[in-house]
Simulated scan of single mutants.
Amino acid sequence: MEPTPEHNEKMARMTFASVYPLYLTKIEKKGRTKKELNQVIEWLTSFDEKKIKELIQEKVSFQTFFERAVLNKNAHLIKGMICGYRVEEIENQLTKKVRYLDKLVDELAKGKVMEKILRNE
């Protein structure tokens, strides 16, 4: 299943600041920490904790967020289903990157060990 153009546009406009608290709530309910969440975000995007805070304060869209990111060279190893979509089959590059992040947060919440989440080969 491929996301619709409308879905892709919604992903581009959504702000990182609106989603970050949802990620945090999701992982904290499962006993994970903000530090671990930021570690996962930094692995994918190269944004350290200071930069993450700046992007939240700036209320950047996911479009801007990923334009500024330097995606990890192993991001292509993120595979599987998230929100009804198979991540590796998503053609729209921005939507794929957002779903990469969703998938990493989901794995963190599910208790996966950090080494596996970060796909360090």
Results as ranks from 00 to 15, higher is better:
Ala69Trp: 11
Thr15Val: 06
Glu115Ile: 10
Tyr100Arg: 04
Leu55Asp: 02
Leu37Asp: 09
Ala69Met: 08
Pro21Tyr: 12
Lys10Phe: 12
Trp43Gln: 07
Arg13Met: 12
Val19Phe: 04
Phe65Met: 11
Glu9Cys: 04
Leu118Val: 00
Ile52Lys: 02
His7Gly: 00
Thr33Cys: 06
Lys30Asn: 13
Leu24Asp: 04
Leu37Val: 07
Glu42Pro: 01
Glu36Trp: 02
Met14Glu: 14
Phe65Thr: 05
Lys110Gln: 14
Ile41Lys: 03
Lys59Met: 07
Glu89Arg: 13
Asn38Thr: 02
Met11His: 12
Met81Lys: 15
Met81Gln: 14
Thr95Leu: 00
Leu37Gly: 03
Arg119Val: 01
Ile90Ser: 08
Glu89Ala: 09
Ile56Lys: 10
Trp43Asn: 11
Arg32Gly: 02
Asp102Pro: 00
Glu115Cys: 03
Lys59Asn: 15
Leu101Gly: 02
Thr95Glu: 11
Glu54Gln: 13
Ala109Gln: 07
Thr25Pro: 00
Met114Phe: 02
Met11Leu: 11
Gln57Tyr: 04
His7Ile: 09
Thr33Tyr: 07
Asp106Arg: 07
Arg99Tyr: 15
Val87Phe: 05
Ile52Asp: 01
Val98Asp: 03
Phe16Val: 08
Glu54Trp: 00
Ala69Glu: 08
Val70Ile: 07
Lys10Thr: 14
Asp102Gln: 13
Leu37Phe: 07
Lys73Arg: 14
Ala75Ile: 03
Leu94Glu: 07
Val40Pro: 05
Glu115His: 09
Val19Leu: 08
Thr33Gln: 09
Ala75Gly: 05
Glu88Ala: 07
Leu44Phe: 08
Asn72Lys: 10
Val19Ile: 14
Lys53Phe: 00
Ala17Ile: 03
Lys50Asp: 10
Asn8Ser: 14
Met81Arg: 13
Lys96His: 10
Ile41Asp: 02
Lys34Cys: 06
Ala17His: 01
Lys96Ala: 06
Asp48Ser: 09
Gly111Ala: 09
Thr95Lys: 00
Val98Phe: 11
Leu44Asp: 05
Lys10Val: 14
Trp43Cys: 03
Lys53Ala: 12
Trp43Gly: 02
Glu42Val: 01
Cys83Gly: 00
Glu9Ser: 12
Val60Ser: 05
Ala75Asp: 06
Gln39Pro: 00
Lys34Val: 03
Thr95Tyr: 06
Arg32Phe: 04
Pro21Cys: 13
Tyr100Val: 00
Thr33Pro: 02
Phe16His: 06
Val105Ile: 14
Asn120Tyr: 11
Met1Thr: 11
Thr95Cys: 04
Asn92Phe: 02
Met114Arg: 09
Leu77Tyr: 12
Phe16Glu: 12
